[in-house]
């Protein structure tokens, strides 16, 4: 097994909440990311999936060191980058780039496309003006844009094209790893497919590694080799796409999967759904024990007191649940209901 290019160990990111008249005292902490460990191997795509507020975007920002972590370590290409300063991070950023969700907001509207894509090259002093221009035009061509459009402004492009510009900018320094934070969720379905295909092609051609963060389970499944499912700042389940989507073990992962609409009316009618009640609790004051227990259809007393540890389900499949889902696909609504306590005591 190859050595991981990125290894995140027990990363915690808490945002303190302060209040007070003159002297601010801390009244709580938003536990956005709370003890997350992830390995990313060279050349693979690791998907991180979860609903809004689960901490996946905060995690992405921690990886790219846009946030300082509260505790834990981030190792990139064998080097601990957890506490590097801005200056020390600069050479690292060549190898690790980010692509953001909103192609409208993440491009400077006053710069020309050529300047946007060439900016990292200029910053890192890669070649003369002419060389950089040639390189930018090559990049434009690579991401499916017309190299002639070098001098245009971002507003002259459609949403999908702007996301291509964002990708070209990320590619400029030939990075090893690209962290994609919801790269396609603002796009139309047909354009989303183009961008996913582009990411697939670029990975093959440039030997890229992706960390792919999204809320859309189908998109994550399509691009990812391995998937991590997050809920309220914690990883609840991890494994290869086939393992997780083939038989989710954590009731949250199972509920997510069952909630995704199936694009076929016949299958949709026959499907068993788990409709979760209520909303995701506040990360300011997360539930005790297993964070999913207040909404979990299988929860027992144990779940509210003891935090479950990750258990292996063969291969790379790990899930943190006291009462994992035994049967999948759900054939009967009873499959997801409270387990018989007697039956689960081993």
């Amino acid at each position: 097994m190859t050595e991981p290019i990125l290894r995140i160990t027990d990363v915690v990111k808490h945002f303190p909440v302060r209040r007070g008249i003159i002297f601010k005292r801390e009244i709580g902490r938003v536990q956005a990311v709370d003890g997350v460990s992830i390995d990313v191997r060279k050349g693979e795509t690791v998907g991180i999936v979860g609903e809004s507020g689960c901490g996946k975007s905060t995690l992405a920002r921690c990886i790219a060191r846009l946030h300082d972590v509260t505790s834990g370590t981030i190792e990139f290409m064998g080097r601990d980058i957890t506490n590097l300063t801005r200056n020390e991070m600069r050479p690292i950023r060549r190898d690790m780039q980010m692509v953001f969700q909103d192609p409208y907001a993440s491009l400077n509207p006053r710069l020309r496309v050529g300047q946007i894509i060439g900016e990292p090259l200029v910053i890192h002093g890669r070649g003369t003006e002419a060389e950089i221009k040639a390189r930018v035009q090559d990049l434009l061509d690579r991401v499916g844009l017309n190299p002639e459009h070098y001098n245009r402004f971002p507003h002259e492009f459609s949403g999908g094209q702007r996301q291509r510009i964002g990708i070209a900018r990320a590619l400029a320094l030939e990075p090893k790893l690209i962290v994609c934070d919801e790269p396609v969720s603002a796009l139309d379905v047909s354009v989303q497919a183009q961008i996913l295909n582009l990411l697939t092609d670029l990975q093959r051609d440039f030997d890229l590694t992706y960390v792919f963060i999204a809320h859309d389970l189908d998109v994550v499944r399509h691009v990812s080799d391995r998937v991590y499912v997050m809920y309220l700042g914690k990883i609840v389940e991890a494994g290869t796409g086939a393992e997780i989507y083939g038989h989710p073990r954590h009731p949250y992962a199972a509920s997510l999967l069952s909630a995704v609409p199936v694009p076929d009316p016949v299958l949709a009618r026959s499907k068993q759904r788990i409709v979760l009640q209520g909303d995701v609790p506040s990360p300011l004051n997360p539930p005790s024990g297993c964070r999913f227990h207040p909404r979990c259809p299988r929860a027992q007393v144990l779940c509210s007191s003891d935090e479950p540890q990750a258990t292996s389900f063969g291969g790379e499949h790990l899930a943190s649940c006291h009462f994992p889902v035994a049967r999948w696909p759900l054939a009967d609504p009873a499959d997801i209901r409270r387990p018989d306590p007697a039956a689960t005591v081993e």
């Binding site: 379905v189 354009v191 497919a193 295909n197 697939t200 189908d218 399509h222 694009p263 076929d264």
Partner: peptide, 23 residues
């Protein structure tokens, strides 16, 4: 094209059957 663009209908495919261009 709309159906082919959906990752959920393209299980196991390397690439999606996307529609070129923009709306």
């Amino acid at each position: 094209g709309l159906m082919g663009s959906m990752p959920s209908r393209s299980h196991g495919m390397d690439r999606l059957q996307s529609i070129p261009g923009s709306p």
